[in-house]
Write a protein that binds this DNA or RNA. Structure first.
Lengths: 249, 249
DNA sequence: GTGATGTTTCGGTCGCGGCCGAAGTCTTGG
DNA sequence: CCAAGACTTCGGCCGCGACCGAAACATCAC
């Protein structure tokens, strides 16, 4: 309840993320949707009282924002900057020695296509990313990316105008590490726009109670035809093996 | 001393950064140079024993790497990914309500030109970044960037071959928030290369015991002539005012 | 109104971990 | 070979904060 009158230090911010319960809540909020305190409590595995305390701290530090709606309180990440911190932490956390059984979504549906924050992840997202790169519609170098002029035309035809002034500071085109496939997929405003568009088009539909996406339009009149996906895009990508990380230095 | 056998969780990583002493050490290592345990102790303001414990934890979690050299032990950040976490945390930490007196380097020399990690910061760095953008040698959109073909020619003439295969995964061209001016300046491999080159050329010289850079070659045969800086590049940039952050949501 | 549900506040317990003093290991310099 | 310096290990103190039970508060359904 006490107001933070001046900015935080990086230690204060990190300390807040450093508690497992709070980290779980924040990770749950990376899904992009606002969640109620109760939902976050079950994600974190602690009681409602404890959750309430945690959320108050996070709100005090302006990591999450809260919106009252009836007897529910909906919490969401306050900005893309906060999501960026979590994403960077995930990269470092994932960069340790590989676990024996690759951690990540267990269900096949999740591995195939799911949402990640506000964009797509899973094999479909990787196939789209690869196809956009192969056709020079986007250029990814070292994890950052840009959209070519041809790409802008392509996306405009697809129903996304990338030239309209952005209302947010958020990067247009960047990559995000895919949990199940261990390779980067497309994120940023472009990644978010693509997800929004394919939902509007009815090519995918979010499954209730899960981040999985049901794919309803695959062939020539859908993903394969529009993006030029290869026929074997459903296969688990062995590039992940090539990109394997080395162990100890 | 206990070995971490599998990767960390994001909470574990954040928890390590969440201690003020460790955060100070890591922030000090953001300067890019490897520092001894003793130096880190003074940065953190704790005793050598305490520092030793902290560094052991950080090394265990593979956030820092250590190199023995005689009776000194030099510690450095283990990867650009770790630096990215710290940078993202700084952005969030800075995004609170603005402090009454803008936090940032107090000394005029630091505001004018200094090192930041391994590249340049301060008004000079911003002027260079702006000039490179104005001449289409680099293109920055939403915080990520790329070098144009003309830019590659320019940098080759300048003494930087950007086409040589990169030995690291590090992005070639990205931006980094400037603490004193509150605007992004050029970072990434390109930013680091420029700093290295202008030091080699003798245009700037690091000041002992400080991150400040002394500027020794300004005019036509130096920064202004080579990069095409405007004559008023020393003026505090009012773009920072325009980029002001909004307060509460 | 009463009861049910979602959330917060209060009070108290308890364990983790940061901290330092003292002592030990390793390296260098004389 | 000994002393000084850099760093680590050990042991113990102590405080912060995560946690939960109980109760209060808020909102909705009836």
């Amino acid at each position: 309840m006490s107001r933070v009158v001046s900015g935080n230090t990086i230690a204060e911010v990190a300390r807040l993320v450093g508690d497992p319960a709070r980290a779980n809540m924040l990770a749950a909020l990376m899904g992009g949707r606002a969640l109620t305190a109760g939902e976050l409590a079950s994600h974190a595995g602690v009681t409602a009282q404890t959750t309430s305390g945690h959320l108050a701290k996070l709100a005090d530090a302006r990591l999450v924002a809260v919106e009252k709606q009836g007897r529910h309180r909906y919490y969401r990440l306050v900005s893309a900057d906060v999501a960026e911190v979590l994403r960077a932490l995930m990269v470092v956390a994932a960069s340790g020695p590989p676990r024996r059984h690759p951690v990540g979504p267990r269900e096949a549906a999740l591995r195939l296509a799911r949402t990640c924050y506000d964009h797509m992840a899973g094999r479909l997202a990787l196939a789209i990313t690869d196809a956009l790169c192969a056709s020079d519609r986007i250029v990814l170098t070292d994890g950052v990316g840009m959209v070519s002029a041809e790409g802008r035309r392509f996306f405009r035809d697809f129903g996304l105008d990338l030239d309209e002034p952005s209302t947010t500071q958020r990067p247009l085109c960047r990559t995000c590490l895919d949990w199940s496939e261990r390779r980067p997929h497309l994120a940023g405003r472009l990644g978010a726009g693509i997800l929004r568009r394919v939902i509007d088009l009815g090519w995918v539909s979010p499954m209730a109670g899960s981040r999985a996406l049901g794919i309803t339009r695959i062939g020539e009149a859908g993903f394969v035809g529009s993006f030029g996906l290869p026929s074997d895009w459903r296969m688990p990508d062995n590039a992940a093996v090539r990109n394997d990380r080395v162990g100890a230095p």
